[in-house]
């Protein structure tokens, strides 16, 4: 029983991390059809910010966390401004390939200017301690992660429902030109989308860093690959879909860890991706995606 509860909490924590990242991808995709593969490098920017603070002997956890998040938001907005603006109205493939290119550039810049090797960041270890939750041993980090994700989802929902800009972003997912035609500046909508996306990546960065304790140029790649998968599963562009997809992916991963015999551990990713591919065959557009009309829009 205790084992099951532990694994459920494991799945929730994994899922929360994927959901955070997937939301960041989905919010950008929903308004501009861009699959932002460079999202992972935004996480790395947060990580390297922590390294920089460490070098400056700044260890105050609040400053470290705040700076990492702010740096991620800033980097995300800069990407929109300089890399993605030229392909703003291009087809998804052009956007996807641009994002691959940006991701490659950033990874190699980290490699070039910082180091190809992992650098230890210990300032966030304090977030992780064992907690006894109703007799079950769990990690505080997992609870933080699940809690923070829940909070973020609620905050995001309020933003999207209550503020004019939030409402505009929901409208933009459907008809961007019409949003401009009511006088809302396209640049602002894009900037806010990337700002929110960067914020989500920054938060995910905190948890990723607290868990792995080191940063390297390629650290963002795997998490974003998973987030990408989560988005696809949930239905690309759908925000609830991204959250659902994230948690499904977390559950599948933990199930694989639990169910697969020890010696098959190396095949975990293969099984996860296999299951995801099967899911897509069953629902080609993802679970929660709106029906896509292939004809001309009137």
């Amino acid at each position: 029983m205790e084992y099951i509860v532990q694994q459920v909490i494991n799945a929730l924590a994994f899922g929360a991390e994927y959901a955070l990242l997937a939301l960041g991808l989905a919010i950008v995709f929903s308004i501009m059809g861009l699959v932002n593969f460079a999202h992972g490098e935004i996480i790395a920017v947060g990580g390297y910010t922590m390294v920089a603070l460490g070098a400056l002997m700044i260890g105050n956890p609040y400053i470290v966390i705040a700076s990492a998040v702010v740096a991620a938001m800033f980097a995300s907005v800069m990407l929109e401004r300089f890399a993605f603006r030229p392909v703003r109205y291009a087809d998804p493939t052009t956007g996807l390939l641009t994002a691959f290119g940006v991701s490659m550039i950033l990874q190699n810049l980290f490699l070039l200017f910082v180091s190809p090797r992992p650098i230890a960041v210990t300032s966030l270890y304090f977030l992780d301690w064992p907690v006894n939750l109703f007799g079950v041993q769990v990690s505080s980090l997992q609870l933080f992660e699940t809690g923070a994700t829940a909070l973020v989802i609620v905050a995001l929902m309020l933003f999207l429902r209550r503020t004019t800009l939030g409402i505009a972003m929901r409208a933009a997912a459907l008809d961007f030109e019409m949003v401009r035609l009511v006088g809302i500046r396209a640049n602002r909508v894009f900037a806010v989308a990337f700002l929110v996306s960067g914020l989500l990546a920054g938060l995910a960065c905190i948890f990723i860093m607290a868990r792995r304790g080191s940063v390297d140029p390629h650290m963002g790649f795997n998490p974003v690959l998973k987030a990408f998968v989560a988005c696809v599963v949930g239905g690309f562009g759908s925000l609830p879909g991204a959250v659902l997809g994230g948690f499904i992916l977390g559950a599948v991963e933990v199930a694989m860890l639990v169910l697969l015999p020890q010696e098959y551990g190396g095949m975990k990713d293969a099984f996860v991706f296999g299951i995801i591919a099967l899911l897509l065959i069953w629902r080609p557009n993802g679970i929660l995606s709106p029906r896509i009309e292939k004809g001309d829009k009137v």
């Binding site: 409402i167 505009a168 929901r170 409208a171 997912a173 019409m178 006088g183 809302i184």
Partner: peptide, 16 residues
């Protein structure tokens, strides 16, 4: 904006 309420449509109309 089909995915928004009537009121939110109007709210966006007055965004400026």
């Amino acid at each position: 904006f089909a995915n928004l309420s009537v009121e939110d449509n109007l709210k966006l109309g007055g965004a400026i």
